[in-house]
Nucleic acid binder design. Structure first.
Lengths: 190, 190
DNA sequence: CCCGTACACTTTGATCCCGAACGACCGGTG
DNA sequence: CACCGGTCGTTCGGGATCAAAGTGTACGGG
């Protein structure tokens, strides 16, 4: 029921709601669909391949990163996996407790911690990644190889825009005002 | 640093890791970028428009849905917002406590609960949605209107594929076997 | 050699989120 | 009218999240 019809429907309803105010419809549809697709894909993957392995999406991504990049420092892994360092601490512990990941202190710089896949982790990814990739192919099976490339290219523009100009944009929106603190998070000592 | 270069790099490394096994590269890149873009966009929106309103992304989406669609039954809202029923219970309570949402029991069917935006909720969305849409335009500003339409169309194919064939696909993957239960989740009383 | 600044990971606090289990409720049946 | 299969929203267990505070290491002066 959702999909084409509801998106279009929602756009019209939103337009009506806003009366005369112009809505950037193409942009709205693009963003809405980015998020919709991401949720759908993640959910499908979590409930198929990852379910059996008893790994969450995040844990899988982290393991994938260290598997592909080899032994790496945690901050790079967090960056690449798109999660915060704090989250990575918890996730990597989960993976460690499952015996898939190894955490080692850096030989010369005591501040660093290196993550690497264990033997079991290697074996796991060698087995599960093909299945994962197979599902990636499934979810995109309505698109040609060329369309997949186009899609990736368009999305890359979005990512780059946010990565390169997002922070400045947010600052200018605040216009010097102190950013509203998050409701959650650790409180100042005082 | 991420983006074009690291994706390509990762593909090559993954290919090497898998040895002879063929990797569906275009599909992998497409899926990876969908998720990457979704995270980037969500984070930008959360840290700009939503930050000041002290609403999470999910809460905003839920409010947006009931605002656009009018009074609705919770399960439809959850479906449309892409969250589980359980999550909606909490989110709608939060919105209710902020005075933006109203929860009403269905007049004839005692099982149902209806959600609707309050006067304050209407006013809130009329004020905040334009700002939200403005940021949607910002994140997609490297794309032309036409490209946004193309992007939305391509993503729609992905969403439709999962929505229409996802469940069947997951079933066939399991091949009759009982789906592995999640590690977390409520335990039987006994 | 000691200090201060700069890093790098971890802990903490407050939420968020999913999905299985639950219990209230519906409509139909015997 | 008690029972039953099925549907709803709610509760609950446990992982995941982020940002700020905390802990510990590194390194260039003084």
């Amino acid at each position: 029921m959702p999909g084409q019809r509801s998106i279009t429907e929602a756009e019209k309803l939103a337009q009506a709601k806003l009366g005369g105010v112009p809505v950037r419809r193409e942009q709205m549809a693009a963003v809405a669909n980015i998020y919709r697709a991401a949720s759908a894909v993640r959910q499908h993957l979590e409930n198929s391949v990852l379910r059996d392995s008893d790994l969450t999406w995040t844990a899988f991504v982290v393991l994938w990163v260290v598997w592909v990049w080899g032994e790496s420092e945690t901050r790079h892994v967090a960056e690449e996996a798109g999660i915060s360092k704090g989250t990575l601490t918890g996730v990597s512990r989960t993976l460690e407790s499952r015996g898939l990941l190894r955490r080692t202190g850096h030989p010369t710089d005591g501040r660093l911690v290196l993550l690497a896949a264990t033997e079991k982790g290697e074996e796991f990814m060698g087995r599960v990644f093909p299945a994962f990739n197979e599902e990636e192919a499934f979810v995109t099976s309505r698109l040609s190889g060329e369309e997949c490339r186009d899609l990736a290219g368009l999305l890359r523009q979005v990512v780059l825009q946010v990565e390169e100009n997002g922070e400045a944009r947010r600052r200018s929106l605040l216009d010097g005002a102190p950013p509203t603190p998050r409701r959650s998070g650790r409180r100042p000592k005082a």
